[in-house]
Simulated scan of single mutants.
Amino acid sequence: METRFPNLPPLDARAYRAARQDRGDGKVQALLEAAGQVFAEKGPDRATGKEIAERAGINPAAVNYYFGGIENLYTAVLVKAHDELLSYETLSGATAAETTPEAKLRAFFTVIADRVTGPNSTSWKLKVLSREFLAPSPAMQLLQNEFPRKASIIRAIVSDLMGLPEDHPLVAHGCVSVIAPNILLVIGDRPTLKIAFPYLRLEPEDAPVLVDRMTRYALAGLKALAEEAKS
């Protein structure tokens, strides 16, 4: 399906400010929350500024006033969801607080587990990001700009665990093996996951067990890859 925003411009100054700086403006936050809900339910192709403004209880003209149009509003919603769920700062802060690569890996998984088992797991934020990852719009470029920095975090951890340089091909394979389950948890539709894996528990109290199992599984796999490098 052709995207509704084929020539989406870069996030302009107004929208960027609204998404990341003007947290105290009640109208801005109301629009972002309402837009997030509508975009999660309908996607950017079927959402309208009028419906978003009505849900926020605000004059429809506010969409243009604060964001410069619905296209920038959609991009601002992605920025907000990304910042509050899986920003580089969140991941780097969690891992930097640990001293060993094993603890850093566990901290990385803890961030993911907290997001997919906590309140955000049923919020519009994960749904909007899931839609964008599965059916990218031009706004995806804004998120892709963050990918290299995030990859550098897990690449350094995997490199230390395997005792191999970061540019070694097996380190890249190890990173993919570590990240892939997390991507499934983040973008996977909850009802679909429950159908495929009816006994998969993703409640808040399950987070520590999930982290422990993912960590042990990853460490065992990385150890096997490291042994392969020696043979």
Score class of each variant (00 low, 15 high):
86 L>R: 01
86 L>A: 01
86 L>Y: 02
87 S>D: 01
87 S>Y: 01
88 Y>K: 08
89 E>M: 06
89 E>Y: 01
89 E>L: 09
91 L>A: 00
91 L>E: 00
94 A>Y: 04
94 A>S: 05
95 T>P: 03
96 A>Q: 05
96 A>N: 05
97 A>N: 03
97 A>K: 10
99 T>F: 09
99 T>A: 14
99 T>K: 14
99 T>G: 08
102 E>L: 11
104 K>T: 06
104 K>P: 07
104 K>H: 11
104 K>W: 10
105 L>S: 11
106 R>P: 08
107 A>K: 09
107 A>C: 14
108 F>Y: 15
108 F>M: 12
108 F>P: 12
108 F>H: 14
109 F>D: 13
109 F>N: 15
109 F>G: 13
110 T>V: 08
110 T>P: 09
112 I>M: 13
113 A>S: 15
114 D>Q: 15
114 D>M: 11
114 D>G: 15
115 R>F: 11
116 V>W: 15
117 T>V: 14
117 T>L: 14
118 G>W: 02
118 G>Q: 07
119 P>H: 08
119 P>Y: 03
119 P>M: 06
120 N>A: 13
120 N>T: 12
121 S>V: 11
121 S>T: 13
122 T>G: 07
122 T>E: 10
123 S>P: 12
123 S>K: 14
124 W>G: 07
124 W>Q: 07
124 W>V: 10
125 K>Q: 14
125 K>F: 06
125 K>G: 09
125 K>C: 10
125 K>S: 10
126 L>F: 08
127 K>I: 12
128 V>T: 07
129 L>E: 02
129 L>H: 01
129 L>Y: 01
130 S>K: 01
130 S>D: 01
131 R>N: 05
132 E>A: 07
133 F>S: 02
134 L>H: 08
134 L>N: 09
134 L>G: 06
134 L>I: 08
134 L>S: 09
134 L>T: 10
136 P>S: 08
137 S>N: 11
138 P>W: 04
138 P>K: 03
139 A>Q: 09
139 A>E: 10
139 A>H: 10
140 M>E: 00
140 M>D: 00
141 Q>F: 08
141 Q>L: 05
142 L>T: 08
143 L>G: 11
143 L>E: 11
143 L>C: 12
144 Q>M: 01
144 Q>V: 00
144 Q>S: 00
145 N>E: 11
146 E>S: 14
147 F>A: 06
147 F>D: 06
147 F>P: 02
148 P>Q: 07
148 P>T: 08
148 P>E: 09
149 R>M: 04
149 R>S: 07
150 K>R: 06
